[in-house]
Design a protein around this nucleic acid. Sequence first.
DNA 1: AGCGCGCCTGTTAACGTTAACTTATTATTC
DNA 2: GAATAATAAGTTAACGTTAACAGGCGCGCT
Lengths: 367, 367
Amino acid sequence: MKNQPKKPVTLADIAARADVTPMTVSRVINSSGYVHPETRERVMNVAREMNYRRNGLARGLKRQCTETVGMVIGDIANPFAAELTRGVREVLEERGYNLFICISEHTAKEDVRAFDSLADHRVDGIIAATRASKSGNERLEELIDSGIPVSLIGREFRHAHADLVSADNLKGGYEATTHLIEIGHKRIGFIGISLTEGLRLRRFQGYLEALKDHGLPVEDGLIAGGREAAEQMPGYSTEEMGYDGMMKLLELKNRPTAVFARNDFTAMGALNAIKRAGLRIPEDIALIGYDDIPLAAHTSPALTTVRQPTREQGRAAAEFLLRRVEGDREQPRAEKSFACELVIRESTLPAAKALSSKNRKRQIKTA
Amino acid sequence: MKNQPKKPVTLADIAARADVTPMTVSRVINSSGYVHPETRERVMNVAREMNYRRNGLARGLKRQCTETVGMVIGDIANPFAAELTRGVREVLEERGYNLFICISEHTAKEDVRAFDSLADHRVDGIIAATRASKSGNERLEELIDSGIPVSLIGREFRHAHADLVSADNLKGGYEATTHLIEIGHKRIGFIGISLTEGLRLRRFQGYLEALKDHGLPVEDGLIAGGREAAEQMPGYSTEEMGYDGMMKLLELKNRPTAVFARNDFTAMGALNAIKRAGLRIPEDIALIGYDDIPLAAHTSPALTTVRQPTREQGRAAAEFLLRRVEGDREQPRAEKSFACELVIRESTLPAAKALSSKNRKRQIKTA
DNA sequence: AGCGCGCCTGTTAACGTTAACTTATTATTC
DNA sequence: GAATAATAAGTTAACGTTAACAGGCGCGCT
């Protein structure tokens, strides 16, 4: 009826109007303890009329838990992060937790800031899916030490009391590269990384190992894209990295016959660079991506890639976290590594057309 | 030195160790009021040693503000939402606010839940960038009435005290369609929408109006994709919608010569369907998308599309919000509509190749 | 009659922080 | 040398909620 523009309605306000104590109102709102049906009805009506919203701050302060989990991701536009988030949300929702997401834009500074703001708000736990950084890791360690449950996804950081979920990207990179080698390629480029940075990227390590194991040399010239700055620069998209990187490789007098792209977006950029140069895929250059984003099955040619069970990783991280939140916070670290799966499509094997429809099937697994 | 596994450190704990009152510690932590440099030093050291983290709940409760803004988006994987978020973050960061993001997965239920959990946590304001829904709008209205500042981005909902930012997608859709008409097309399909749902989508209305204004008939058969369910179904990607929708159009005995896709992802799916059918773009079928995602400049052929100043919309929404947060919460609604820009590339005009590099320039405008 | 127990409600005291106020101790000014 | 101002702390009382405890009432059971 009236509008209450100024101060938010409190339990006490309702209590006064309904002629009970705030405690009784609290019981009604939370459906806890005994309340006479008639009283409940009356209180509920008043609460509705006054447009009551409970104060989560006060509630959290008193109850020492917020039923909220924080998640930090590097890039909001990344389908991989999106899929992780879906997995996380699935689990959290089942168990009645809310999710707050913070974005780091792939910078260490924002990484720390995100951890801080989540910790300040006393979320019940934090899921960190950002790339490791020195300052980020330090802050993470402080938080874990101070008792906040933390679950890590694919982050190169270990702590006795932080659970860890990851995909075996070393193996994924190894298999992708091996696939290219097995179909006859000897000069295989890698796009989307700088050599120095690369040492932290498992899938790139897999690439190096596969080359080594098959007696192929690593040529620095075949590794393109990913100038350091790009990592910090939100404007410089990974597609562009792929496009520019591929262009560089195409200019070589002895260009590669196959290219492994850091991820599907990079591959997408590379794919377009190759086509624009009038070359055929996979006849002139074979191409393989990583992540199996939805678009990968729909490019032309359809993109060979490596699928990691992304949603499952999100689910696992959330489950680890909640186990810790609701159980012993000091329990030893749990670790789970998911196997990757090579998804062969047309960009490496023209004959694979038959397979591509199979690879388009949806994956609705509930672990 | 010691690890404090159980209870978090409080101001009182520090105060005891540093032999001062909690108030003094508070002053040190917040750098407010007078504190003797020596005392400050001592307190700081103790705080550091004890790994103190302030309790944002208690702080927010007392100060009646959290310096945090909540944002609700429908889909985390959407580059459009990502870019909006960047704009929002830019502004918030400058002004010292944190951002918590909630995902609705395009469902009304989660939309409401997100609003609730943000409101419960007493964020200082909410930015809603999700599609309107009945229940969502109702909740939003309650929140606004109860005094929470709200900024809307492209949401079909109006309230006297909620600011509104949008792009003129009606005009964008109109111009895109007009462009196709002007280059000679008469049978123009629209992909990614159902007729019923379409009436809410401004760019689709623009399409209809343009046809009407140029004396062309609207053929239901040329409107494909977007079965109702797809909207609710996170698994069904918009790329697939584009692919499937295009396939349907290609099966027509009298197929369209040009297609307007609901967004660039849908266009991407359509593009691949067309190629797979062995047809040429734009010679056999011209294609136009919407949003100008980074990938659009890198497909082959490069995609003609409509750019909306996305980051600017995010910035504007954040600025409106903070104005309200820090000023008069009851001030009348501010509205800002951004013009869209047709970006002509190869998918509608092969001769446009020369333009495409121009269109690849980055847009770093600071409103 | 008396006991115990389930129901319903109230009281008290935090949770951790800080705004507002008070007290005490030094400079600074005329 | 007294008045004024600046500095450095402490005290009190919330912010809105709820855990824990304490009644009081009525009912069934022995």
